[in-house]
């Protein structure tokens, strides 16, 4: 665990040292704040004490920002050779992956913590459904975990950060939109399967306060599978011939 935390701490420090963290935090709060309070179907337009507008926009900001955090994780280390430094230290590959995973989801958690004033403000404006709101935050964290997993996998497959970013975005779009479209245009079990693979379907349920074990299973397994594939990819260097 010590090893994992060391890597996570180092990555979080490097987010803040390189200004990435400040830029993303500012952009995240700016964009989500703008659409929650000022523009579009904001809180005053729908005239309800709910954070749903925030959850709807936060979904997309996290969707686009997570790959920006994950893209350098392995791609850059491969390019500069520091991955060899890291993977010859007394730890397992999976610990390196876990450290990086924790760093990215940790930064997302920090950004969500900074939106607590939204929560407090809205709860003073009217009767807020606290359960649904907490469930919404859980949904964002689960979403961040899944996207981080996909992003790390994409980053481990290339040594070019741009390629890693685009690959993560397109994989994300597959789960976000394409699975939904396929599900709507098919019938029977195919439709059910693609509906289950649709990220937005699960996220919408959770952000409305309906936490079903199916939703949790979906997010957790998407995370675990992508992290497992990342570790499989890293261990391909041990292939015998």
């Amino acid at each position: 665990m010590e090893f994992v935390l060391t890597i996570a701490k180092k990555e979080i420090r490097s987010f803040f040292d390189s200004l990435i963290a400040y830029i993303l935090l500012t952009a995240f709060l700016g964009i989500s704040g703008f659409f929650t309070w000022v523009y579009g179907s904001d809180i005053f337009l729908i005239n309800q004490a709910t954070l749903l507008p925030f959850f709807n926009v936060a979904l997309w900001t996290i969707f686009f920002f997570t790959p920006a955090l994950t893209m350098k994780m392995f791609a850059e280390e491969k390019r500069t050779g520091t991955l060899e430094f890291l993977l010859t230290k007394p730890g397992e590959d999976i610990q390196v992956i876990a450290g990086k995973f924790l760093a990215v989801t940790g930064l997302t958690a920090i950004s969500l913590l900074l939106t607590i004033p939204y929560y407090i403000t809205v709860s003073t404006l009217g009767p807020l459904d606290h359960g649904a709101t907490i469930s919404g935050y859980i949904g964002l964290l689960l979403l961040s975990g899944a996207l981080t997993g996909i992003g790390l996998l994409a980053s481990s497959l290339t040594n070019n950060q741009i390629v890693a970013y685009l690959a993560a975005i397109f994989t994300g779009l597959f789960f976000m939109i394409i699975t939904g479209v396929i599900s709507q245009n098919t019938t029977g079990s195919l439709s059910v399967i693609f509906n289950f693979l649709n990220l937005q379907f699960h996220y919408d349920a959770v952000s409305r306060g309906v936490i079903d074990s199916r939703n949790i299973i979906f997010f957790v397994s998407l995370t675990v599978v992508s992290l497992y594939l990342t570790s499989l990819n890293l261990s391909s260097r041990f292939i015998k011939s």
Partner: peptide
């Protein structure tokens, strides 16, 4: 692997470093 890694100090080819630190 883990035990061996702990015994070895390794300077890889081209001396990769985290230059932002």
């Amino acid at each position: 692997r883990k035990a061996v890694r702990a015994k070895i100090g390794y300077l890889p080819e081209n001396n990769p470093l985290y230059t932002d630190m």
